[in-house]
Design a protein around this nucleic acid. Structure first.
Lengths: 224, 224
DNA sequence: TTAGCCGTGTGACTATTATCACTTACACTT
DNA sequence: AAGTGTAAGTGATAATAGTCACACGGCTAA
């Protein structure tokens, strides 16, 4: 992915630094910039009227953010972007990006590739959720976090991002209690474990099998 | 949308005619062509191992199909495309499309716009489903069909596509019986009606309100 | 004209998931 | 060391959705 975004650095823009918890933008804000992440992690979320939070991505180095309103008549962000850790993003104005895309076909093609990949991610998530219910949503979230932020140790995968049960629940649109019970079950079945507050996946194949994983690869099946 | 795809007609390709029920491609097939629909309607579906069918779109004149494997290393269709009515599609080889995209930036930009729109559609569907459960999925499907195939009559909207309960259920990943009960409830509440086997929506605002519709517009909230 | 098929409708039951209310565990402050 | 706050864990119950079984009606082909 890194090779694909390298080209975007040539486009004039500015660097924005964010502290943990700081918003890059809110949903409903007028959208002026297209971003990609240089360092750190950024939560992409959406609020429901009921007060629930739906988490969609955890963007990291190389991820693009705010691409959705790119060619909208009235460009408005439809998600929130909040720094999880100290982060830096590169901000390019839509108008600047537009003119560069017109001049450089290879840039447009790269963006097509990136957005196409996003489509695939979104579809595979949709599939997991819709066909296998909350179990599908939760197992799929674990697999995606493992693919994006997992570190292989002791024959398992340690998810190196600290996440509360509530945060994990937000990724699968599940009640915290339901998520908690599922994690407890998985722990009892020796599929996962908690190590210093981080999730350690002993048997990722079990998770994949349960949701009939199509093994779409780490390029697609991730949370970035 | 039609204006956006006009440009694609300049690219050499071939016309493929389909009879109702005929497959344009199956999921898992090696993907060679990018299509757009000239006439008729095409179901886009996905099969689950359990035998269930998940319906995603009903493509019509101006819709693009098979765009997902565009820049994949091993291009494979991930959905099925089946004609619902006698249809004609225009087929462009990926390799041909690639070279045209490189030569014509405006073509790449148009494709970006179209795919960006698809992303928005997908996100809004995801939201409806995830935040409002099956009710969200079903009401949202009705609204989308109304936006794509609705005809205003008698102060309501008639969905001009004949759909069985099973077909509608496939769009919302719901059991036929559950869908049936929900439709019955809506009928009792005078929100919808059945006219000669077609769904007639009396009170679309009720449906929109129940799923906290963000009024994203017909360009986004449709089933194409 | 009638048997067969298909789609609809519905009751009874089961499974899944959410909600509420509370206890426990742990880190951090004072 | 006690007090406070936050997250985790859990039981009981309610709400939502799926499954199974079957009745009914309309259409069609023999």
């Amino acid at each position: 992915m890194d090779s694909m975004i390298r080209q975007f650095y040539e486009i004039p823009g500015k660097v924005v630094a964010l502290q943990p918890g700081e918003y890059l933008f809110h949903e409903g804000d007028h959208a002026k910039y297209f971003y990609f992440v240089r360092s750190g992690q950024i939560f992409i979320t959406k609020f429901a009227e009921s007060g629930r939070v739906l988490s969609l991505r955890l963007a990291t180095r190389g991820s693009i953010i705010g691409e959705l309103p790119l060619y909208e008549e009235v460009p408005v962000y439809i998600f929130n972007a909040i720094a999880q850790s100290p982060s830096e993003v590169y901000a390019i104005e839509f108008s600047t990006l537009h003119s560069w895309l017109e001049k450089k076909p290879s840039l447009a093609i790269n963006l097509l590739k990136i957005i196409g990949m996003h489509m695939r991610k979104q579809h595979s998530k949709f599939r997991d959720l819709v066909l296998y219910g909350k179990k599908g949503a939760i197992y799929s979230t674990l697999i995606r976090f493992a693919n994006s932020y997992g570190q292989e140790v002791d024959g398992g995968i340690l998810i190196t991002v600290p996440l509360t049960n509530q945060e994990l629940a937000n990724y699968s649109a599940t009640a915290r209690e339901s998520l908690n019970r599922m994690l407890s079950d998985l722990r009892r079945q020796n599929v996962i474990d908690i190590r210093d507050g981080l999730i350690f996946i002993r048997d990722i194949d079990f998770l994949k099998q349960e949701i009939q994983c199509e093994n779409c690869g780490r390029e697609i099946c991730n949370i970035e």
